[in-house]
Every structure is written in C-alpha cells, then in structure tokens.
C-alpha cells in the first residue's frame, strides 16, 4: 500500500432508499473524513456504486473498511491503491471571456483538451475531465481569467488493468 494520504474506496451498495444516509452517517459518527464522494447506479439496477476518497490520517483505512462492511446494505468494498488504479474527476467551470482575452482562453482550452459546452459574449462554460490533481492545476490556469462558477463531481475510479 502506498503512503498516500487520500485513498479511494469503491463500495457497491443495494439501491434502496436511505443507503447513502447510512453510509454518510457512519462516516460522521465514527469521525472519518470524506474528501470526495460520487454516487450513481451501476449497470445492474439493484446496486449503486459509492466512490469515496478518504483521508487515512483521520482514521486507519482498515477501520473505515471494516465499519462500512458492517452496514447491511453494503455488498462489496474495494480499496483502490492510488498506485494501482485509474481515477478521474469531471469539472464544469464558467470563465469570463471578453473579446480581449478570448483568444488566450481558447488556446488554453485547446492545450488542456477541455471542451466548450456553452458560451456567450462575456463567458465560456467548459468541461474538463482528468486525474483530480490535474483539475487543480487547470483551475489555477483558469483563475487569472476570472472563474464565475465551478462544480466538481468527486472522483470515480477503477482498478488498473493487469499487464
């Protein structure tokens, strides 16, 4: 296991009312810190997947996994070592883009392979998906243009494929 502070836990849970509340309640009452959280149904409609990034400095990872396992509606838990998994996060961001700086912004968008989703004379809304650390770097690049609104999804992850 790597010494990274943030680990990703992928849980498969029953797709029933209140399951997210059970999981979130467990984290708060046991004092585990969630860095990010993404929830969505899986390809099997009986189950959803909750992907957490947890701060392992707030609690031993094994405790987090063992306590999650005690929830009756949690069917499966996988801990993804950052070194052995692929993670992605999506960001939607609206940036000021008047005519004087629009060209520079469009160059940046091209360089970073972001996509323009929506635009008018003053602003451009774009989407960017990458490793979570890259999202932060891109955000720094956009900041001088003026960020009006920004929304991130929280990370999702899958294990790396074997060679």
């Amino acid at each position: 296991m790597s010494a990274e502070r943030f680990h990703t836990i992928v849980t498969t849970v029953e797709n029933k009312p209140g399951v997210l509340a059970r999981v979130a309640g467990l984290f708060s009452r046991r004092g585990f810190n969630i860095e990010s959280l993404a929830v969505a149904p899986t390809d099997d409609e009986r189950f959803s997947r909750i992907t957490f990034t947890v701060d392992v400095e707030s609690a031993p990872l094994e405790q987090v996994v063992n306590q999650l396992n005690k929830l009756i509606n949690v069917v499966d838990i996988k801990e993804l070592d950052p070194a052995d998994s692929v993670s992605r996060e999506l960001m939607l961001v609206t940036v000021s883009a008047d005519s004087s700086r629009r060209g520079a912004l469009m160059d940046l968008i091209d360089d970073w392979r972001a996509y323009v989703l929506n635009e008018n004379d003053e602003q451009i809304m774009l989407s960017f998906s990458a490793r979570p650390a890259r999202l932060l770097e891109f955000e720094e690049q956009l900041r001088p243009f003026g960020i009006t609104e920004l929304q991130r999804t929280g990370r999702v992850a899958l294990p790396s494929l074997g060679r």
Partner: peptide
C-alpha cells in the same frame, strides 16, 4: 423513526 435509529441499531427497515 428509521432516521433517528439508524445510528443505534444493527439495521432498520421501513
């Protein structure tokens, strides 16, 4: 009731 007792039961059902 299920919300109140979620943290103090092994499991609950509605």
């Amino acid at each position: 009731t299920t919300g109140i007792t979620m943290a103090v039961t092994k499991h609950n059902f509605l």
